[in-house]
Nucleic acid binder design. Structure first.
Length: 306
DNA sequence: ACCCAGGCATTGG
DNA sequence: CCAATGCATGGG
């Protein structure tokens, strides 16, 4: 069954194709998300109910309007509202980009990126759990390998729903991964250690009632302290959770090799940039370092001047 | 056959 | 406190 579309307005400027493209790594399909012919699709897991959201942009970058169409079981009006809120969060629709753009004016390189990628918002994950698991499985390995493993994880353990002849996957639930043995997880081409990490994180997320999802009120430092107490979660992983799951605006994961490479090429003529140096350099973008991170990564992914 | 990749925990100075 | 090491796997 399909319900009438729900319309909502993101904060302008909002470039739908660029934002959903970033979310799918500019590959059309990435894990649980797809962007196909102007339609962003994701199977939402709303309190255990699976709902396929199909999102299209009706307006322009400066007057954006998104239409969310829902399909799935037992849709209620309240469910429709929750689905629209979830979609809005996933696409980072409320980001105050203009504040970041104003700050970037003082920096010709970053300013250039904000012009090229004008309207790119920061996509979020549906949960802290999802952000942590994705970050852990991406530790140290190349993005290609991470993509293979992520796909295996989602298609092996994610809740699935077939709609209109196509099968869609939501991100695996904590209780599912907590119930899987480390031995089973090893079949996902994870290292033994990462299988343990993910299993442990899933147990924490599943057992303590929403312990991982109650970090919203804590300041960044406290969130990092809480998360790095988990085995397998270091500063880099915790920072990605701050960025992806909590949408904190002033985070710069200076330990990230690719991020430092982008800084090196764009600002230091390719010379090696150490973590400490990158952290100091990033202060020029505070209090909007998260968006600087996003735009630098986009430059990398699209191969723009990097 | 190597070496590296969007880290981390562990071990040994 | 800092350096070295192993980790799974796909691509160069």
């Amino acid at each position: 069954m399909t319900n009438p579309a729900i319309i909502f307005r993101p904060t302008a400027p909002f470039d739908f194709n660029l934002t959903a493209g970033y979310l799918t790594y500019f590959r059309g399909q990435y894990g649980s998300d797809s962007l196909d012919d102007g339609a962003y699709r994701r199977l939402l897991d709303l309190q255990g109910k699976l709902v396929l959201a199909t999102v299209r942009c009706l307006g322009t970058v400066d007057a954006p309007e998104l239409a969310v169409e829902l399909a799935g079981d037992s849709l209620t009006p309240a469910g429709g509202e929750a689905a629209a809120l979830r979609v809005s969060w996933l696409l980072g629709a409320d980001a105050p980009l203009n504040d970041f753009y104003a700050l970037a004016q003082a920096d010709p390189v970053m300013s250039g990126l904000t012009v090229q990628f004008r309207g790119l918002h920061l996509p979020h994950t549906a949960s802290v759990f999802e952000a942590l698991v994705l970050a852990v499985l991406g530790q140290q390995i190349s993005t290609n390998v991470a993509r293979v493993i992520r796909t295996l994880l989602i298609e092996t353990y994610g809740p699935r729903q077939t709609i209109g002849g196509a099968t869609y996957f939501a991100f695996p639930r904590p209780e599912t991964l907590a119930a899987a043995s480390v031995e089973e997880l090893l079949r996902l081409k994870l290292s033994g250690r990462k299988a343990e990490y993910i299993q442990g994180i899933a147990q924490v997320a599943a057992e303590r009632d929403a312990g991982l999802e109650s970090l919203q009120e804590l300041p960044d430092d406290a969130v990092v302290a809480r998360l790095t107490a988990l085995r397998g979660v270091g500063l880099w992983t915790a920072q990605w959770a701050l960025v992806r799951a909590l949408g904190r605006p002033d985070v710069f994961p200076a330990g990230d090799l690719a991020l430092r490479r982008a800084v090196s090429r764009l600002y230091f003529g390719g010379a090696t940039v150490e973590e400490r140096q990158a952290e100091e350099f990033s202060r020029r973008w505070s209090p909007w370092r998260t968006y600087a991170t996003l735009y630098l990564f986009t430059a990398l992914r699209l191969g723009v001047a990097v």
